[in-house]
Design a protein around this nucleic acid. Structure first.
Length: 292
DNA sequence: ACCTCGACCTGGGCGC
DNA sequence: TGCGCCCAGGTCGAGG
């Protein structure tokens, strides 16, 4: 699921539930999600703390408190949602055609690995079927030091992401463009969906050597990365299967995707049949005519 | 230093 | 209806 636009969607939706609110109690089910917990056991350090802010860098979400930061990575299937006593629980809903597993609000189930009861009565829950996500505690404030500790590169929606920064990152790399754009140590936030979309918008083939992107193409790629991400955020994220916002709402960006997952369909630009291949170990879709 | 590959997990879809 | 196989939005570490 979750690339930068999905994590940003979760951040925005959770903000009003968490800002200035204290944690009453925390329940954690032992799970690999909490491996290498950095600076302490979550339930011990988080109880009684007040959420002072909610920020994001790349695909990492930072729940800031008065004594440290809860760092959350949603992996492939992570869901960070609020269960609000003012709203009504609904059962999981499986879309007949798409298989979407989503709900407006649900009680904890066997895949719910963390519950944080808030002083408002609402409960912050983390659910993750495949358990590729991470939750860890850091005594550091969300900022450069924490970002460094997580090994994160430039977030493309910050002013640090310039055409010049993009050029510097690409010029020394012999690998294919797609692999380089997926590298979180270089750019933090792009995943398989938004890389394919950005490369289509930029008119660049995923297999092109990163160092061979020069001149006007750099500007196009820079713009395309931001456009693809902003579009995803505006649509509330891409829900292919189980992505939901903090309030359990699905996203709608999947309806506006140009190439991702559309192998065999006509290119929205020229009508040519979209091709599929493997780059950076990931299924990749592109138009051989529009992308050079 | 770089790159590729498999591992980590569970569940859905599809073909037989 | 059921079984086996393939696939999936992300990282991480081993090995070449």
């Amino acid at each position: 699921m979750p690339e930068l636009p999905e994590v940003e969607t979760v951040r925005r939706s959770l903000l009003p539930y968490l800002q200035g609110v204290a944690v009453r109690s925390v329940t954690v089910r032992p799970c690999r999600i909490f491996r290498d917990g950095f600076d302490g056991t979550l339930s011990e350090v988080l109880t009684g703390r007040v959420f002072t802010g909610l920020s994001r860098h790349g695909k990492w979400l930072f729940l800031e408190t008065d004594g440290g930061t809860v760092c959350v990575h949603l992996g492939m299937t992570g869901q960070l949602t609020v269960r609000d006593r003012l709203r009504v629980d609904r059962p999981f809903h499986r879309h007949l055609k798409t298989g979407l597993e989503r709900t407006i609000q649900h009680p904890p189930d066997r895949h719910t690995h963390m519950l944080a009861e808030l002083e408002t009565g609402a409960v912050l829950m983390y659910r993750d079927v495949r358990k590729f996500g991470r939750i860890l505690w850091s005594g550091l404030e969300a900022g450069p030091a924490l970002r460094e500790r997580l090994g994160l590169g430039i977030d493309p929606l910050t002013e640090e992401f310039t055409v010049e920064a993009l050029r510097r990152g690409l010029e020394s790399r012999r690998r294919d463009l797609k692999s380089v754009l997926l590298d979180q140590k270089f750019l933090a936030g792009l995943g398989n969906i938004y890389v394919d979309e950005a490369l289509f918008l930029a008119g660049l083939r995923p297999g092109r050597g990163a160092y061979r992107v020069k001149g006007a193409a750099l500007g196009s790629l820079h713009r395309a990365v931001r456009t693809a991400l902003y579009k995803g955020i505006e649509a509330g994220g891409t829900t292919l299967r189980d992505f939901v916002s903090g309030e359990g709402q699905q996203g709608y960006n999947q309806e506006g995707l140009s190439v991702y997952g559309r192998y065999g369909e006509p290119c929205p630009g020229c009508g040519e049949t979209l091709r599929r291949g493997l780059y950076g170990g990931r299924t990749t879709t592109w138009c051989a005519r529009c992308q050079k």
